[in-house]
Design a protein around this nucleic acid. Structure first.
Lengths: 153, 153
DNA sequence: GCTTGACCTTCCCATCATTGGAAGGACTAA
DNA sequence: TTAGTCCTTCCAATGATGGGAAGGTCAAGC
């Protein structure tokens, strides 16, 4: 099947399939004489594996490890579990950071009248030189918010 | 003071100060004859405001709005509160997504022996064509995980 | 056989906030 | 004067993804 069909069947966009090939996450495919990439059901299966890994927030690097463990019949389940649990702890760290941000903001907003008058504790706090300047410093592993790549629906 | 001193005093790196100037978040500064940027305490105050906003996860675009409200004595606190609460809801959405990922993975890992044998429910689930293929689809506003810009400590 | 439209190819660009580094000028203390 | 630290601008990379252009290919219908 062509890349478009493989994309539809796997839920990974054609763009991303080419990208994954370019970075070596998936091997180069067979091509038709005209240069079209050709995919098998097996390839689609691998792409689904990759997509489900992405959906769980694994990085491409981690997915490469997972794929290679998946294809290794001699793997130790411990190696997989280690990757998963490391990722969980990263996720939990990130969750805590976001929760701190949200709770700080919620607290500030609760004290803001939100009317037409200018007095606003939110701005006051942001402008406060004394208060926890380093209090909510996000971890290096994550940007604060940042728009990020859209996923296909 | 020079940019290096302003950076140290504000907690915003010199690189970022130049960047913020380039995108118009902060105005162009006065320069010495040699072309060095010169900052006042007032500028440092603004930079601190910006840094604290970043620490709370606001985007540069939102910060631009916050800064302009901050400097507007006629502002309505409602406008500030609206920005803050919108941001809170985005944060909460993101938190929910990450929590889903973490709980799915925790659940899978709990059922994985994590020994030297190859059997592994984590991989089985990732490879499972049937199961919730679209279950954990992250929202377009955020990448799944992605390494991101480090903040200066 | 030819046209049309849908598909494929590669290549480059943009995102967002941030860091890194190179090349070169300016300043300061010894 | 020299060494070292600071400053300047400019370019590149990050990660995962989408957008789009320019051009080749294929299948269906006429």
């Amino acid at each position: 099947m062509n890349i478009g069909q493989a994309a539809q069947a796997s839920g990974v966009s054609a763009k991303m399939i080419r990208y994954y090939e370019s970075i070596g996450l998936i091997p180069k495919t067979v091509r038709t004489e005209a240069g079209y990439r050709v995919y098998s059901d097996h390839d689609v299966h691998t792409l689904r594996f990759i997509r489900r890994s992405r959906d769980l927030g694994f990085s491409v690097e981690q997915i490469a490890d997972l794929v290679s463990l998946w294809q290794d019949r001699e793997r130790a389940s411990k190696d997989v579990k280690t990757i998963a649990l490391e990722h969980v702890s990263v996720l939990e760290h990130k969750i805590r950071e976001l929760q701190e941000m949200a709770s700080t903001l919620t607290h500030l907003a609760r004290n803001c009248h939100g009317d037409t008058r200018p007095h606003c504790p939110i701005l006051e706090e942001l402008a406060n030189d004394e208060a926890g300047a380093v209090h909510l410093k996000p971890d290096a592993k994550f940007g604060a918010l940042g728009k990020a790549p859209a996923r296909q629906a």
